[in-house]
Amino acid sequence: MLDLRLYMAQRLSALIMAPLVLGHIAVMIYAIQGGLSVAEILGRTQGSAFWFAFYGLFVLAVSVHAAIGLRVIAHEWVGLRGMALSLFTWATGLGLFTLGARAVWAVTFA
């Protein structure tokens, strides 16, 4: 049953990530073609609840998606099982979420 829940969580996170990836790419193309500097970009994102929510959801979805994907790789290639595999999955997910959340905070509210 755990495998089915992880499978569904990874698929759901992919569904969430897909439009966010497209939005992120569109914003990056707009910023590059518009010749925006880092200061101008930060001026638009600082204090923005929208960008905080957009990239916060992005970070959460990526953290879940990547942790589950790396779990499968660690199981198949490294042979991790049981508690070691669970600890690896949680550490990976929480580590990615922490790094991403710090980045989101830095560009929106720091």
Results as ranks from 00 to 15, higher is better:
E76P: 00
I32L: 12
G95Q: 04
A101F: 14
T45S: 05
A110V: 14
L87R: 15
P19V: 08
A110Y: 13
R44C: 00
A103H: 11
R11K: 14
I41D: 03
L36N: 06
G82D: 09
F109H: 13
R44M: 11
H24C: 08
L6E: 13
V107M: 15
I68V: 13
L70P: 00
F97N: 01
A49E: 03
M28P: 00
L57M: 12
G79L: 08
S13P: 01
F58G: 07
S48F: 03
A67S: 14
L36C: 03
G43I: 06
A39I: 10
A106L: 12
L42I: 09
L80W: 13
V21G: 00
L36Y: 13
V27T: 14
G56D: 07
L96Y: 10
A61Y: 05
V64G: 02
I41M: 12
M83C: 00
T108C: 06
V72Q: 07
V62I: 10
A91I: 11
S48L: 04
F109M: 13
G43C: 05
G43T: 07
S48T: 06
T45R: 04
L2C: 02
E76N: 10
E76K: 11
Q33W: 13
F50A: 07
L94T: 12
I25P: 03
L15V: 09
S86P: 00
G56F: 05
V72F: 05
